[in-house]
């Protein structure tokens, strides 16, 4: 670890390079993620998945992209046009704003031009709350989309958005409170440093909080088993029923970016962050952890059916929230005694 006083000055160029790095990597991954998702789901269900475009269907991504960009952009006649147009932008924008405050790679200096690139584009000292708040604000996208399109399925989708949001947001906050109490800071960098130099990962001390956070994370990103908002078998596509082309694509990119953000939060808060591990450098470790959590989300999607809305609320309010509160109480007691 470099001592805090020895850190070079963060320049505007460094921040811009970091921002471009994050945008390029995440936006690229969000597109490529669809291909990975289809392939992994296919292998888990003993199918082949996309095979026809390019070798093993790798170029399917390009084909889908061309289709999305050139598709006709339809706005339903009785829809509220302004809100209908704003909704997808909210989802995508908040997903990327949230990424401004998460650390992705360790600090490094670009060798020849000597520009210091910080680990985090904007290290505000309440980073973790900011990211969670921004991701919560992202739920306004589905909500507004469903209400603006004057479509039954859409309005059911947005009603489900509201109940899902109000249910799991409590669990997200409470589950992450216990690690915050241990570290004593809301900054991601402090979380990372707490687990540096061979210290145990926080998941060892806080296994319950980790599981609760993962469950809430699935709800936050609308992934199966909590994909109530757009479940095809029940409500056609929920809030995206009337969307086509790039507007639909923005929802999609937002969802994938949020999946990666949840992966980053889980890695930095619970799984040791971007510290070196034995001989493995930190940036490989963080990529590995993010990739694993991404894979884990697909794995769960292939293994579990989705739940009903009432089951989701039952789970959140009667099981997860009491567990989270008890976890906080025990953490507090142990911290007081030790």
């Amino acid at each position: 670890m470099v001592d805090a006083t020895m850190l070079p000055e963060v320049t505007a160029a460094g921040v811009i390079i970091k921002a471009i790095l994050i945008l390029a990597v995440i936006a690229g991954l969000a597109g490529f993620g669809t291909y990975i998702e289809r392939k992994i789901l296919a292998f888990m269900q003993r199918r082949l998945g996309p095979m026809h475009v390019g070798p093993h269907g790798v170029l399917q991504l390009a084909a889908d992209g061309i289709k999305l960009f050139t598709k006709e952009d339809i706005i339903p006649q009785h829809a509220n046009k302004i809100i209908f147009a704003i909704a997808p932008i909210i989802t995508a924008a908040t997903a990327f704003i949230a990424l401004a405050a998460v650390p992705v790679f360790p600090d490094f200096t670009i060798p020849f031009i000597d520009v210091y690139v910080p680990s985090i584009a904007s290290d505000i000292n309440v980073g973790i709350l900011f990211v969670l708040g921004m991701m919560a604000a992202g739920l306004y996208g589905p909500l507004l989309a469903g209400m603006a399109q004057s479509n039954k399925w859409g309005i059911i989708g947005s009603a489900r958005t509201a109940i899902q949001f109000l249910s799991y947001e409590v669990v997200t906050g409470l589950s992450i409170l216990a690690p915050i109490m241990m570290v004593g800071s809301l900054s991601f960098v402090d979380f990372n440093n707490y687990q540096a130099d061979g210290a145990l990962w926080l998941v060892v001390y806080q296994p319950v909080a980790f599981v609760l956070f993962l469950i809430a994370g699935f709800a936050e990103t609308n992934r199966t088993p909590f994909d109530l908002l757009e479940h095809e078998a029940e409500i056609i596509s929920g809030y995206v029923t009337e969307y086509s082309g790039m507007r639909w694509g923005l929802f999609f990119i937002g969802e994938y970016a949020n999946m990666i953000t949840i992966g980053i939060i889980a890695s930095v808060v619970f799984l040791g962050g971007y510290n070196d591990f034995w001989f493995i450098p930190g940036w490989i470790m963080i990529i590995g952890k993010i990739a694993f959590s991404f894979f884990f989300m697909l794995w769960v999607r292939a293994s579990w059916p989705h739940v009903r809305p009432d089951q989701l609320m039952w789970l959140c309010w009667k099981v997860l929230m009491p567990l989270a509160v008890i976890n906080i109480l025990i953490t507090g007691l142990v911290m007081m005694i030790v």
Binding site: F130, L132, G133, L143, S150, A159, A162, F165
Partner: peptide, 26 residues
């Protein structure tokens, strides 16, 4: 600032739920 963001995002979301029940949004 962050507390303002989190609290009011949630509070207005509850307001939306009532709006959805009582009004035709379009």
């Amino acid at each position: 600032g962050v507390v303002q963001l989190i609290v009011y995002v949630g509070a207005v979301m509850a307001l939306y739920a009532f709006g959805m029940m009582f009004f035709d949004a379009t």
